[in-house]
Simulated assay, not measured.
Amino acid sequence: MEESIYLMHTYNRFNIEMESGQGCYLKDTNGKEYLDLTSGIGVNCLGHNHPVLVDAIQKQVATLMECSNLYYSKPMADAAKKLVEYTGLSKVFFSNSGAEANEGMIKLARKYSYDKYGAGRDVIITLKQSFHGRTITTLKATGQDKFHQYYFPFTEGFDYAAANDIEDLKKVANEKTCAVMVELIQGESGVVPLDKEYVKAVEEFCHSKDILILVDEVQTGIGHTGTLFCFEQYNVLPDIVTTAKALGGGVPIGAVITGDKCKDTFGPGDHGSTFGGNPLSCKAADTVLSIVTEHGFLDHVKVVGAALKTGIENIHSDKIKEVRGIGLMLGIVVDPDKRADYVQAMMDKGLLTLTAGKDAIRLLPPLTLSLKEVDEALSIMKEVFE
């Protein structure tokens, strides 16, 4: 590919150039069509070229793309209102990406603690095997040693506790702890859901110490698990939530959503983002939220997700060790030495999948995936695994 001459080699790209997309399918420059179970790593939640989203974006482009955060815009207000009403939280800050949203959440948590308790109560506990972003600070927040190299010095102020072990969390927490930050499904580590009993225990412990509960829903948010946010299925109400990927349906945007405790923590000048909350990205987010919260949409995600998971579990092959996940965020555990071969074989047959962790094939299909398309995907998987 000519692009390899000019682009930094930060990705192990497949030797395919994608040209167009429609619904749950992508087409390359040779005219080959692929059923896309990646959705841009969880971004294209409405599939490709969704007519309502495309129309909304085109109209917004012709009206106003950016005007700076010195002024209000209706798309920004509309998207923020929907996020507040749907989550039961209080206020929103818009960013451009998931990592930037997580940076904002970290800053917000530390300022809340500083304002209330003074200096020295600034450590955030994250979970081992977590992943929170690619910036210097979010790399340090990530609970995996392999990310803590090359880019020294890292931002300090993070401790790490074992997932699903409340006693370990209590041992790690101390008078310097201001927040606990979790992914309810550890996506990059192999699509590993946290235990519900553990999450409730974390909530109870944090409430008893006025430690903030931060939930990173950059990947799980906006319907992938069958509810708008995954925390709804864990019966907890976080103090701060972040989301990004699917929020704009393909247009870059992230969001920090805070509850009552931190709703007034940031004042003018405490945080900002030149492009954050621009009318174009917020119009996309407002449109996505309107569609995903339509009656029956998330019920469809649950039904199709269950059909896909059950179908994979019913494939008669000892090559599949486990299927885990919730809704349309699934991981197929396989032999790590064979995983790349399976992904390539499915691609050759017209099915796009992802990888995560050491041994998982990750599936993050568009939320518009149909039962017919589930059958098509399962047919290809059977050919590869059986």
Rank of each mutant, 00 (worst) to 15 (best):
M181Y: 14
F229V: 05
A173I: 04
Y198K: 06
G226S: 01
V182L: 15
G187H: 14
T225S: 10
E197S: 09
E203R: 15
V218F: 01
T177S: 12
E204M: 14
H224C: 07
I211T: 01
V172H: 11
L212W: 07
E204K: 15
L214R: 06
N235R: 10
E197Y: 02
L212F: 07
Q186K: 15
M181S: 10
F205C: 11
L228T: 12
E188H: 13
G223P: 02
G221K: 02
A179Q: 03
T225Q: 07
V172D: 08
F231S: 13
T220Q: 10
E217I: 04
F229C: 01
V236W: 09
G226T: 01
S208F: 09
L212N: 05
C206R: 00
K176V: 07
E203K: 14
P193Y: 00
V218M: 04
K200A: 09
E175G: 00
G190Y: 01
I213L: 15
E175W: 05
G190S: 08
C230Q: 08
H207D: 12
I185S: 09
C206S: 12
L184N: 13
E232L: 06
E204N: 07
G221A: 04
P193Q: 03
E197H: 04
H207Q: 13
S189A: 15
T225E: 00
F229K: 07
C230F: 07
S208Y: 09
E197K: 05
Q233A: 10
Q186G: 12
G187N: 15
C206W: 00
K200T: 03
Q233K: 15
F231M: 11
C230E: 05
G221F: 02
P193V: 01
V191A: 12
A201H: 12
L184G: 11
A201S: 15
N235Y: 06
G226H: 00
K209E: 13
V182W: 09
A179E: 03
V202L: 09
D210W: 00
V182E: 15
K196T: 04
V172N: 10
T227E: 12
K196Q: 06
V191C: 13
K176M: 08
K200E: 11
T227K: 12
N235F: 06
D210R: 02
N174T: 05
F205R: 01
K196V: 03
G221S: 03
K196H: 10
T227H: 08
I185R: 07
F231Y: 13
V191P: 07
D216S: 13
Y198S: 10
C230W: 03
Q186A: 14
L212H: 06
V191W: 03
K176L: 05
P193K: 01
Y234E: 07
I185K: 03
F205W: 14
V182C: 14
E188G: 05
G223Y: 00
E203A: 13
E188K: 12
E175N: 03
L212C: 07
V202W: 06
L212I: 06
T225D: 02
E197T: 09
T220I: 02
F205L: 07
E232S: 11
L184R: 11
F229R: 13
Q186I: 03
G223K: 00
F231D: 13
E204V: 13
K209M: 10
V191Q: 05
V172T: 13
E175C: 03
L194E: 11
Q219W: 08
P193E: 02
